[in-house]
Simulated scan of single mutants.
Amino acid sequence: MLNLDDFYRARYVLSNMVRRTDLIYAPKINQESEIYLKPENLQVTGSFKLRGACYKISQLGDEEKAKGVIACSAGNHAQGVALGAAKYGIKSLICLPEGAPISKVEATRRLGADICLVPGVYDDAYRKALELRDEFGYTFIHPFDDERVIAGQGTIGLELIEQLPDVDTVIVPIGGGGLASGIAFAIKTLNPKIKVYGVQACGAPGMLQSLEHQKIECLDAVSTIADGIAVKEPGELTYRTCKQYLDGVVTVTEDEICAAILALIEQHKLIAEGAGAVSVAAAMFNKVPVKGCKTVCVVSGGNIDVTILSRVINRGLSKSGRIYTFCVELDDKPGQLFVVSQIAASVGANIISVYHERNDDTSNVTACWLRVQVETRNAEHVQELQLALKNAGLKLI
């Protein structure tokens, strides 16, 4: 059973290990709501995960510490365990999916942990960690389904209540459910009137599906840019806690996640990983009822793989109406490119690239296709360009 006293004890123990992240006012995320960000991406390890991991390790007995600890993780929990183990001078072994971002793997190694890369996803790393625990007697530090880990994560809820006592809504990412369980339990215990919503990626809706079907279910596969919440199966304790305390769970698409990452970069100079941005995406695209509400989005982590950041930004630009690609069918004769360029310029769109193709599949033998990518201001600007092209008699493909 979760106990609020344990949450306050965790806050005391963690006071010299973690940052008490300040709220950031974010008026442009959703102009119909008063949005604040809880930037856990600014923690020492770049994620909230060190709260639960460090508190759990602090409560181990001498015999358990002597045997060392083992954990499984997509990356963020790994760094939290590695840091906590190093602080208490004990050995740590981390099992990571072999597809985990190299930046997270190397960051974990730099904190002093031994690394075991496991083929597959998080759940495969989890099974491997249990095998090694049984073989060598390590103490297993679960990433989410543990009372003390949840208590550590729940210290964020205690901070939120103190920082914004009149908050109406809190939006939290969900993978296995440890963060959502901790925050929801702490907030609902102190003030049941506050709404708490969980957010998952469309490609990894394990908790949502389990809650809808009233039983814990394991997904066949997960696929999302939000690797930190790419969990096939929620925990038993986290499932029960989320079922009791959450006001709802929603999902966001990959494009919405990318748009949220871009918004955080541009508007607040914050780098968020996919899992950290899902709460912001839910607020941006009105996946939860935030209109007229004082809302906090928990940005749970910032350890994004920099090698994919440019692709994420491009997807975000497209989703936000900042980049638009269109294809028109034209008569294959001189001056047609000039016509299209004039139309784009007349509405203030900036051409980035042009690709011309003579296509034998068109019904008009003398026709060609012109694919153009332009910079635009927003979705309304895209609609203005589309209307201008149609009014000029051009056929949009």
Rank of each mutant, 00 (worst) to 15 (best):
D5A: 11
M17C: 14
Q43G: 10
R51F: 09
D62K: 13
A66C: 12
I70S: 10
I70W: 10
A71G: 06
N76K: 12
A78T: 09
G80F: 06
V81D: 08
V81I: 06
L83R: 10
K87M: 15
P97R: 05
R110H: 13
L111G: 05
G112P: 00
I115R: 05
L117E: 06
V121L: 08
Y122G: 00
D123G: 02
D124S: 01
K128R: 06
R133C: 12
R133K: 14
T139E: 01
D168A: 06
I171H: 06
A180L: 12
G182P: 05
A184I: 06
N191T: 11
I194V: 14
G198D: 04
G198M: 04
V199N: 01
A201D: 07
G203A: 09
P205R: 04
E212V: 15
H213D: 14
H213N: 15
C218H: 15
D220C: 10
K232R: 11
K232C: 03
E236G: 13
R240Q: 15
T241I: 14
T241W: 09
V249A: 01
A263Q: 00
E273Y: 04
S279D: 03
M284T: 02
K287R: 12
V290D: 02
S300E: 03
G301P: 08
I313N: 00
K319G: 01
R322N: 03
R322P: 00
Y324T: 05
T325R: 14
C327R: 12
Q336E: 10
I352G: 09
E357M: 11
E357K: 11
T366R: 13
C368I: 06
V372T: 07
A379L: 15
Q383M: 14
L387H: 13
K390N: 12
L396S: 07
L396M: 13
